[in-house]
Design a protein around this nucleic acid. Sequence first.
DNA 1: ATAGTCTCTGTGTGCGCACACAAATATACA
DNA 2: TGTATATTTGTGTGCGCACACAGAGACTAT
Lengths: 356, 356
Amino acid sequence: MNSIPQKIKIKDIAEKAGVSAGTVDRVLHNRGNVSDETRRRIQSILNEINYRPNHYASALASKKVFVFCAVIPNCEPGGYWELIEKGLLRAEQELYDFKVVVKVHYFDQYSPTSFADAMDVVLGQGSAPDGVLLAPLYRPKTLIYTKKMEEMEIPYVFIDSRLEEANPLAFYGQDSFQSGYLGAKLLFSQHSDVDKIAIFSFFDTGQTPSNQIAIRMEGFKSYIEKNQQSCKVLRGTLSADDPEENEAMMKKLFAENPDIKGTAIFSSRTYAVAGFLEKYKMNHVRMIGYDLLEKNVEYLKNNTVSYLIAQRPEEQAYKGVKAFSDHFIFKKEVQQINYMPIDILTQENIEFYMEF
Amino acid sequence: MNSIPQKIKIKDIAEKAGVSAGTVDRVLHNRGNVSDETRRRIQSILNEINYRPNHYASALASKKVFVFCAVIPNCEPGGYWELIEKGLLRAEQELYDFKVVVKVHYFDQYSPTSFADAMDVVLGQGSAPDGVLLAPLYRPKTLIYTKKMEEMEIPYVFIDSRLEEANPLAFYGQDSFQSGYLGAKLLFSQHSDVDKIAIFSFFDTGQTPSNQIAIRMEGFKSYIEKNQQSCKVLRGTLSADDPEENEAMMKKLFAENPDIKGTAIFSSRTYAVAGFLEKYKMNHVRMIGYDLLEKNVEYLKNNTVSYLIAQRPEEQAYKGVKAFSDHFIFKKEVQQINYMPIDILTQENIEFYMEF
DNA sequence: ATAGTCTCTGTGTGCGCACACAAATATACA
DNA sequence: TGTATATTTGTGTGCGCACACAGAGACTAT
């Protein structure tokens, strides 16, 4: 009764094999210095019995300090990347006793060069990190560094979005196409006779659709082509640092097209457009936005935004770090592609997502 | 560089206080046998510095085996409670090295007596468990046992639903009222001119609304009263073990009311109604259902069900067990009321919830 | 004064493992 | 055969902690 299944220890294996614990330790960690014969003998015993090392004891005895670097855009307060950072810190806290350190390096979201600079710092320091977690915003630049990390044999984890060409230890993020597709469905879910909508983005049309937001837009358009061919889609481009210009642009757009009945923006800065709609009391325009930010939730609650689509950024980051610890410390298989649920948030359920 | 912040150990505290490690250990665990003076001295040092014990080393050294009992309805394959069980097992696995054992006891979902029997077994054995996790399906019976556990000083955790009158260590579940409310909103989200709907349930109308499903129904009705007063709501009662009778009942109901445009069922056995709609090709009836079961997902995918509302049962159970380990092993504060997110599932996002 | 009893405190061992080091054995070469 | 050198194996210590036990004082009763 109440007895725990008898744990097999290294010493047990040693006894079975007629060697000392030290030798078993050597084969377990591939430390070499073991004759072929004894290694085979120990291996066969290991295959036979179900030895499950006590990783806590292991961590306790080990002197190894793990350093994982995260390379992410600057976290403006209340913004998306702050949630990512929160997840990183939570993972670090949890792994504190395993001697895990997470170092966060920042770059300018709108400057590929600064991303490269950050990566150079991370990889170029005296001692290279044991793993790198990054958000591959820029395909070409990122590929340069993933290649470099593969040469250096440093595993890396993608969060947010992923690059087909790379081979990360793991990826945690949303299926951007599908989240865009769903956004369109929700936009049209109330009245399918919406015949003119506007969508907004923060980047130039000319840019290669290498990142999440561009792919979301593709998904969105794909839904419309399939189910709402007759609907006309207008596009507006927002500036990252000039709110007044943005307001003027939207004002003009909506004035020239009073028959716009719906709108969507695929970035976490949904509040930029929602704020405009609220200010000018455009209740007749139904809106879909992205990401669970305080500033967006406000507009969901007052019904400016009908639905928010969220992607659990904190969990992405947390799981990203955990992927490293699973790999290095707990010796678990890590699943490579991990799509996060595409959460649908409304006035009615938002409250219960706030602390998750 | 790469140095971990210096960890404070018991020995450090002992040195600071001018005593031995054993004495510090005594005050840390309230084991007594320490003079008031030294205890105060050590306490003040503890308050001053931020001592964070290494719980892994602690568990390694400790001989204590924790036994947590779970009392849940029988798990039929592919059913709701199987997901709960899955979460229990996952938690047990994860806590294996902390000498945690989770024992699952089952009762008949439709028999309060069998619930009482199970609880008697759990609490009446030679050695009482360290904690009990239960689903309080029956208010009166449950209250008898929560009182008993409080007398025995055995902490308990609620999952699924909760009782206001009890004082559990923690609760993990959905806000049933709100999930019902949201169900109604989604049912009417496409066309607000739906004027007749049918809702189904597995229990008698006479029963006190003590459990989740009844409260969901209240939330559902509340939405209608607020936003769809003109809509007529018909009710059908299903039998738990007579599918043919159910089919006949539904057949009659829909034949007599061909103008029914929507339907909902608040139990995880959504498939019981969805199967009927599919069989008789009643595509004109929009349906809302509950819970992420394989059998329900099928009907979501083929569009018989428009939305499924889910509540992460596996996570409820997992977190329920973790509440005990946080309390006993990691000495963390446990938040008492924990509402799970009310997930909205559609054809477009269901895929990404399947493995979560 | 001595033995007995309490209260309080220090010491030692082991949890399961990693890792440095010592020891034993095998191999080379003169 | 002996010595030097690899190769292989065993041993010991400590990670941070829990807990049993031994030991030191203080105090009482005889």
